[in-house]
Amino acid sequence: MPSWIARILDWSYFALFARIVLTFPFWASGLSKLIDFSGGAAEMAHFGLSPPAFVNALVLVTQLTGALLIIANRHVWVATGALAVFTLLTIPIAHDFWNQKGHIAQLEFFFVVEHISVIGGLMLAAILSRQSKHKGA
């Protein structure tokens, strides 16, 4: 590996940036649901989740708290676990490609594949956080 790449990878601000990027879908969605609470509740109602306002509040708290903990590199195993379970649960609720036809089924399948990749990224974040704590970093 070139030394300049190693220096970037060892830089603590690059790790912080990586945690911000990894959690972008969660904090962006959580902020959206907070700023437009009624829109977030309408989204929950659209997917048959009830009571919609309560579920919206629960989702935005999960997303924002989980993202903040990962960004801060604190209790990352809890945050990544909660966000991974949340992400996994969205698959049968919002991305049920097996119940769709044609192009929509294909699009929803691609969302599922991306969700699984995000779960893998969350798993890596938990591993790397644990390893950094053992190194004293």
Results as ranks from 00 to 15, higher is better:
70 I>H: 01
21 V>I: 10
21 V>P: 02
17 F>D: 03
67 A>Y: 06
67 A>W: 00
49 L>I: 03
37 F>C: 05
115 H>F: 09
53 A>D: 08
42 A>C: 08
44 M>H: 12
131 Q>M: 05
73 N>Q: 05
109 F>G: 03
76 V>Y: 01
6 A>M: 07
135 K>V: 00
135 K>A: 05
57 A>M: 07
95 H>E: 09
102 G>M: 09
111 F>K: 12
24 F>W: 06
13 Y>V: 11
18 A>H: 00
59 V>N: 14
93 I>E: 02
35 I>Q: 09
68 L>Q: 14
15 A>M: 08
20 I>H: 10
119 I>W: 08
79 A>D: 01
21 V>M: 07
23 T>G: 09
66 G>M: 00
105 A>C: 04
32 S>Q: 12
84 A>V: 10
77 W>D: 15
16 L>I: 01
30 G>N: 03
69 L>E: 01
14 F>Y: 02
76 V>T: 00
26 F>E: 09
96 D>C: 10
45 A>I: 07
136 G>V: 03
34 L>V: 07
33 K>T: 05
101 K>F: 15
24 F>C: 07
124 L>I: 15
90 T>K: 11
82 A>D: 01
9 L>K: 05
46 H>A: 14
119 I>Q: 07
11 W>L: 03
32 S>K: 13
47 F>G: 09
105 A>L: 09
21 V>G: 02
4 W>Y: 12
40 G>L: 08
80 T>V: 06
93 I>G: 11
63 Q>D: 04
71 I>C: 11
13 Y>E: 05
65 T>V: 13
110 F>R: 11
78 V>F: 15
57 A>Y: 01
74 R>C: 10
72 A>V: 09
84 A>S: 15
62 T>M: 13
35 I>N: 08
70 I>R: 05
58 L>D: 11
97 F>C: 14
87 T>L: 15
41 A>H: 02
23 T>W: 07
67 A>C: 02
30 G>R: 02
134 H>E: 14
22 L>T: 00
130 R>T: 15
104 I>M: 15
47 F>D: 09
39 G>C: 05
10 D>P: 00
3 S>C: 13
106 Q>G: 14
55 V>P: 05
90 T>H: 10
113 V>K: 02
104 I>S: 09
46 H>F: 13
40 G>F: 05
10 D>E: 12
33 K>W: 06
87 T>P: 09
78 V>C: 14
94 A>E: 09
11 W>Y: 10
113 V>E: 02
96 D>I: 07
18 A>L: 04
137 A>T: 14
85 V>N: 11
